[in-house]
Design a protein around this nucleic acid. Structure first.
Lengths: 363, 363
DNA sequence: TTGTATGCGTTATCAA
DNA sequence: TTGATAACGCATACAA
């Protein structure tokens, strides 16, 4: 692909070679960036006209637009969105606050979300807050990029931080988080219904010693699920028909579940039916039970997970679980953001997405 | 958190209410963004002084710096990186070209990479090219953000595109891709050694009917692994000691492997030792063999994967595989980018990371 | 060590 | 419908 610029073109200057150990002086011809001024000169119009043509302004003649667009194309002109943001005070960047990519369900959600964000003409700027203490700072840093909106998929931002975003008209959406942030939209799956469904199916299985396994301390979602579960078994608990033990693991992942299995199972009066706060924990628990302790699932131990991650459906697990839809979660998130970004003044909302029992082979 | 700005403060203007169905007019006081001019006025210095203080310029008095920093803090000043990029013509954004988040190894790599990018003071701008046809356009769009560099983890950018980036001093790193892009650094794991290791262990297992399973058409990495595998078994193949069958599946994931298992296994003279292009395929194949066809692994069928994704080590699989290190891959990637971004003129390099056989229970 | 003036590439405003 | 000009917020060369 050769350079087709009409202006002076190559500057002819060479990159300065800073000799260091192992480096080599590579003479590279450098070129000045094509700006709207170049396009304007070439097309014989004003810069403002170029801007109007390329931003789809209606009040421009067809002929001019065609000529300008063609010229821009020919010169390989790429609009400088940084400069654009300078005026508009908005970018098309959307901040994605997450913490690592080790949680399978979150990754599935992000996958859909990233696609949806692009589809809507925005770009995802990922920000990792694996250190929760840095969440506030990191979120505020997002403001440095004049981002159009934020999606929080991890941690719970301190309420005070909301002011900073509200004041600048930057919408915030919290997904499967506690809705402590005033001014933010909150989207959750129906943790309550999920906990109830898990309780129902485990009670119906005839098991007597129920348990709820989640990460120590828990998360907003996990706690909500566990509380709903306990509430749903309350009558049987009161009548003495079943017993209940809260169980906790050190990490909300496969290994956490696995270690918890080794610790809590295989002894006298161990639980024979466990609801896990999330699938990944359930898979670890299941493997410990089957392969380390020789328990039969579901005969000796029934397990119900939450999320319906892809691995839960794999032949090696076939986990019975409560499914939530990452695709719908993503669609709702971006829909909400688009409305806000478009300037619609809408009331903060707390959306709750339905969940569904997926019965496989662990109950 | 109350507003502590010293300047005129609230503009008092209200957001325009655009009544629509379901929307509500929410009167929100808006505030003008705090700029360096505000900090300067408040601290009694010039704007340039503020700039110098906050960008760590050395030639500034301790007293002034302290005062300015304190003032900035008090006003809640966030530097506008958009405006900064305007001058420097560089941002601290790094483009991450990927295609979806369904490939487990790539997700593990991205996890490390995102962390490393932040650690180095940059921000990841994710760009999804699930549609390969849009790769070129999407990559070029990245230029609109004045990005500092690009990491390509999916697809192989057409060589011509390299010119655009080179010309603007935007470094490109290709990870586990074919190195067709002139001017880009290429980082690969040692696919050749991996293929050889797989061949060695399968030959040593005493199996006779070998196979290599990969996605139809294959990828750069997959093909390299398969070719090395075939080359390594060439002597035994020539002597008739073993046979070899190339196998292909429709998708490079669990389901692809699973379907391939149903199709190729369980019949007369089916392969009894299969090397898979990546772990996820191997897991699917393994499940089909064990649970659908009643084969014993490794007795009836030996399997070797590639990547050593987290799931490969789970108790339900215990897959023997060729491990590559996403952490080292990420560290090298960001290291390379940092050098280039810092302006060092270095020769394009083609780095090859060592792989390692992880022997578990499927061979 | 600090202040002044200029420019980065675009969009918005106003004039024609 | 189009052109000229003024911001946008910062960094930097130059002056003091």
């Amino acid at each position: 692909m050769s350079c087709q610029c009409g202006h002076d073109g190559w500057t002819g200057e060479k990159t300065v070679s800073k000799p260091k150990n192992g480096t080599v002086a590579a003479p590279v011809l450098r070129h000045h960036t094509v700006t709207s001024a170049d396009v304007a000169r070439e097309a014989g119009v004003a810069r403002s006209t170029v801007s109007r043509c390329l931003s789809g302004d209606s009040r421009i003649s067809e002929a001019t637009r065609d000529r300008v667009v063609a010229t821009a194309e020919r010169l390989g002109y790429q609009i400088n969105k940084i400069a654009r943001s300078m005026n508009t005070r908005k970018s098309d960047l959307i901040g994605l606050v997450t913490s690592g990519l080790s949680d399978p369900f979150r990754v599935e959600f992000l996958d859909h979300l990233i696609a949806a964000i692009q589809q809507a003409g925005f770009r995802p700027l990922v920000i990792d807050v694996s250190d929760p203490a840095l969440m506030e700072t990191s979120m505020l840093n997002l403001l440095q990029y004049q981002i159009a909106g934020i999606v929080v998929t991890s941690g719970s931002p301190p309420p005070a931080i909301g002011q900073h975003f509200l004041r600048r008209d930057v919408p915030v959406v919290l997904v499967n988080r506690a809705g402590l942030l005033e001014g933010a939209d909150v989207i959750n799956c129906d943790n309550i219904a999920g906990g109830q469904l898990a309780a129902e199916i485990l009670l119906a299985s005839g098991k007597r010693r129920l348990g709820f396994l989640n990460m120590r301390g828990g998360t907003y979602s996990g706690n909500a699920r566990g509380e709903a579960f306990v509430a749903a078994i309350a009558p049987e608990l009161a009548s003495g028909a079943v017993s209940f033990t809260p169980l906790s693991c050190n990490s909300a992942d496969y290994d956490g579940g696995f270690q918890a299995g080794l610790k809590f199972l295989g002894k006298e009066n161990a639980p024979d039916a466990i609801f896990c706060g999330k699938d990944h924990i359930a898979l670890g628990l299941m493997d410990a039970a089957r392969f380390e302790l020789g328990l039969k699932v579901p005969d000796d131990l029934a397990i119900v997970g939450f999320d319906d991650i892809v691995a839960a459906g794999q032949r090696a697990y076939r986990l019975t679980t409560i499914a939530q839809s990452p695709a719908r979660l993503a669609a709702l998130t971006i829909g909400r953001l688009k409305q806000r970004i478009a300037g619609e003044v809408i009331r903060d909302e707390r959306l709750i997405l339905p969940v569904e029992l997926v019965r496989r082979e662990t109950v």
